[in-house]
């Protein structure tokens, strides 16, 4: 009876889609993730901020196991991240990832970049994948670039294609690892606009960023990391107006003076 009750509670809607429990990671001597606990519910937009070297990118990459962890556990939609292999590949298909350096496939056209995953991983027909991909490319505003190669596009355009590529897999959650950090200032907004739109449509998102405007506008929660720890976890309103820790106060004051 009690076991059944437990089972029910773990499957309640609104329960954690991404769940990290007591996660630790070291790079040699350096303790980059210290006892990380983080639950992200379906539809939630969580922005992770913090000074560089605080472990926020590592955290983001650990969620789809591009980084291994030493101990603790990470679960996506109730399923533990498996070891390397088929199971992991299947789970990764449900987790969209957008990188700082776009990482488009340089030898494939924009359209092929978006259709490759659905065709090769999900077995979708080429005609259907093309149709879906064109719709996604239109949605992020680069539909007319479909036959070009990535190198022919601007950084902002490439990053929007990268978002479309991730969305083409119909992921349950999207991870953004500093998606605007490699962009020229005038291109940052075109990427953020796409992300804000995505957030409005109810996508579950974990975003590592330095864009405080995005955090204020689109985040449900702000997670502040320093020295490998989660120091604060609050709504944007609370965090920006009334930070609790001295680390966060210090961080925010440095941002505001520039």
């Amino acid at each position: 009876m009690f076991a059944r009750f437990l089972l029910m509670t773990t499957q309640l809607p609104g329960d954690a889609l991404v769940s990290l429990n007591a996660v630790n990671k070291h790079y040699g001597q350096l303790h980059v993730l210290k006892d990380i606990n983080l639950q992200v519910r379906k539809g939630e937009v969580v922005v992770v901020i913090g000074p560089s070297g605080s472990g926020k990118s590592t955290l983001c990459r650990a969620i789809n196991r591009l980084e291994t962890i030493d101990d603790g556990d990470i679960a996506i939609d109730g399923k533990q991240l498996p070891e390397e292999g088929k199971e992991l590949a299947r789970l990764r298909a449900d987790v969209g990832m957008v990188f700082q350096s776009f990482n488009l496939f340089a030898h494939k056209t924009i359209l092929e970049n978006v259709t490759l995953g659905p065709i090769k991983v999900k077995g979708v027909s080429k005609a259907e994948a093309d149709k879906d991909a064109m719709a996604l490319l239109e949605r992020v505003g680069v539909g007319h670039q479909a036959p070009k190669l990535p190198a022919q596009l601007s950084g902002g355009q490439q990053q929007r294609v990268a978002i479309a590529r991730a969305l083409a897999m119909k992921p349950k959650v999207m991870l953004f690892d500093e998606p605007t950090s490699a962009l020229d200032p005038e291109m940052i907004n075109e990427v953020l606009d796409v992300m804000i739109q995505l957030a409005k449509e109810g996508m579950t998102m974990i975003v590592v960023t330095h864009e405080m405007g995005f955090a204020r506008k689109a985040a449900d929660r702000v997670v502040f990391m320093a020295d490998g720890q989660i120091v604060e976890d609050a709504t944007p309103e609370e965090f920006f107006t009334n930070p609790q820790s001295s680390r966060a106060k210090d961080f925010l004051s440095k941002l505001l003076t520039h």
Partner: peptide, 24 residues
Amino acid sequence: SVPVGQAEAARSIGMKFGQVLSLI
């Protein structure tokens, strides 16, 4: 000579090792 990020991106959309190697 192929940037490691492309392999990571390919793994992120669920490709297996053999696919990452042969397609990307």
